[in-house]
Each structure stands twice: as structure tokens, then as C-alpha cells.
């Protein structure tokens, strides 16, 4: 199925630019509404992420953030524009753990799909459980885990896919503030150790400022890029760093500006 999808993707003029990263160029995408009318989700959006870069996409709900991630993961095709990306793994908003497998089996799903023997795949996934605060829950079924734990298992599954590009859709949205902070720090450390290209969709501006190399601000439906902010802040960062706070303020101002512009249009 994957190969079929690959071959359906357009012959992109930008593969070289994307090497290990993501190039989204002038992409528009609309859905069919209930009465057959076209409902635009993304309008002329361009986003680039260089290899090893973490780009955060922030915007109000309904701005087509999820659509953008599904386009990069080739789950959808754009109506117009170009997309090139290294193989990408998606962590969706819902954790999508399979209820018939235990936690380790879920985390190891990509390894099983890649053809690793079951015991080896479980071993590799299980070894990472401690680091995510999941030690002892290897054999728990998803229904026996808390929301935060489920989210972490889903995150582990995405990491273990071994793909160069990670598309994270509100990965920590369901977590309490304390766990969310811990997970953000853990993600930052993990990416420093083993760099990946990350497209992080979030409506948490603080999270974006804390993690991202660059912030892309989208307007409300249909999503358009209204601002791009460089986050040239040394790591490790803390939510209380002056530079992080300043970036957060700038991002909030851009969001407010685009919201006001929309209000003026309406």
C-alpha cells in the first residue's frame, strides 16, 4: 500500500531541496462539504524544514494543521502545489493504540511491520519504557493506561518507526501540565541525541517556543502562513528563559494580528 502511495505522489521538482527534510510549496487543499461545495482547508501554504530542524506550526483550531501533516505523510494529495519529504511518521491527535495488543506490542508496531522478529522488537521497545516513565507497564493493555501514558506509548511507536521525518499532531495535548513539561524536555533531549526532522503542530505557543527552531503561524480557515519566526535560542531551553518568553510573545502577537485581519475581512 505504501509503495502504491509513493508512486501516486507527483514527480516533485524539489526532491533535492527536501533531502532529509520537508518542502511544502504553494499547497492548497479543499474538502467537499456536505452539499458538495468546496471547503478550503489550506490556501497557498509554503513550509520548509531542513534536515534535523524542528518546525512548529501554530494556529487556531480549524486552520488545516492536521491536513498539512497528512499531506506530508502522503495520506492525502494536494489540490495544487508541491510536497517533497523524506519518509514521514505521523503521531495523530488520538493515540490510536490497538486495544488487542499490550503497551510494548503497540510501541513496537513499526518494528514488527518492518519484519523484525517479535521477541527482538518487544525487547527494543521495552528498553525505552523506563525513560518515558512507563517502566512496569509493558504488559498493560491500552485500556489499563492513563491518557498520558497512552500518549507516551504512541510517541514511542512514532519514534521507533525510524523515519527521518516525524509529524506530531498535538502530541502532548492530552497531558496534564506537569507531564507535558516533562515530555517536552524529554523530546528535546531525545532529538539532540538522535536528530530528526520534526513538524510539530500545536496550539500551545509556549510549547512551540520551547521546542522549535522555527515557528510558522497559520491563520484561521483556510490556513495561510501569516508569519514565520526564527527561534535562534540555545538549548537546553526553559519556559522561563527570557528569549523563550519573548518568542512566545511575538508568536501570540502574530496570532492576534491574523485573527484581527480575519475579523476585518468578515
Amino acid at each position: 500500500m505504501a509503495t502504491e502511495l509513493q508512486s501516486r505522489a507527483q514527480p516533485s521538482p524539489l526532491p533535492a531541496a527536501a533531502a532529509g527534510g520537508i518542502v511544502v510549496e504553494n499547497v492548497s487543499r479543499a474538502y467537499r462539504g456536505s452539499r458538495g461545495e468546496a471547503v478550503p482547508a489550506l490556501a497557498d501554504v509554503s513550509v520548509r524544514a531542513a534536515r534535523g530542524e524542528l518546525v512548529a506550526v501554530v494556529g487556531p483550531s480549524g486552520c488545516g494543521k492536521t491536513t498539512l501533516l497528512e499531506l506530508v505523510c502522503r495520506l492525502q494529495s494536494p489540490d495544487s502545489g508541491w510536497i517533497a519529504s523524506a519518509p514521514a511518521a505521523l503521531m495523530a491527535q488520538r493515540d490510536m493504540l490497538l486495544p488487542w495488543f499490550d503497551a510494548v506490542e503497540n510501541a513496537a508496531l513499526a518494528l514488527r511491520i518492518a519484519g523484525h522478529p517479535r521477541s527482538r522488537a518487544r525487547e527494543r521497545a521495552s528498553a525505552l519504557f523506563g525513560e518515558l516513565g512507563l517502566e512496569g507497564f509493558q504488559r498493560a493493555r491500552p485500556s489499563e493506561l492513563s491518557g498520558g501514558m497512552r500518549q507516551r506509548v504512541a510517541f514511542l511507536r512514532t519514534l521507533l518507526s525510524g523515519k527521518e521525518v516525524l509529524c506530531l499532531d498535538e502530541p502532548f495535548g492530552a497531558l496534564d501540565a506537569i507531564t507535558r513539561g516533562e515530555m517536552q524536555q524529554w523530546l528535546a533531549r531525545a532529538l539532540q541525541r538522535e536528530p530528526r526532522t520534526v513538524l510539530l503542530v500545536t496550539h500551545d505557543v509556549e510549547e512551540a517556543a520551547l521546542l522549535a527552531d522555527r515557528l510558522v503561524v497559520l491563520s484561521g480557515r483556510p490556513g495561510r502562513v501569516t508569519a514565520e519566526l526564527e527561534a535562534d535560542i540555545p538549548r537546553p531551553r526553559s519556559a522561563t528563559d527570557a528569549a523563550v518568553l519573548a518568542l512566545r510573545q511575538r508568536a501570540l502577537r502574530s496570532l492576534a494580528l491574523s485573527a484581527r485581519a480575519e475579523g476585518a475581512l468578515a
Partner: peptide, 17 residues
């Protein structure tokens, strides 16, 4: 669940998988 099938597609699962 179509979302589960979507997930498996992003993980390069074959039709059989």
C-alpha cells in the same frame, strides 16, 4: 477504525499486515 488503518499506512504496513 479507518484511523487505525491510516496509522498502519504511515508505518508502511502492507495490505496483509
Amino acid at each position: 477504525d479507518p484511523e487505525q488503518l491510516k496509522l498502519l499506512r504511515t508505518l508502511d504496513a502492507s495490505r496483509w499486515q
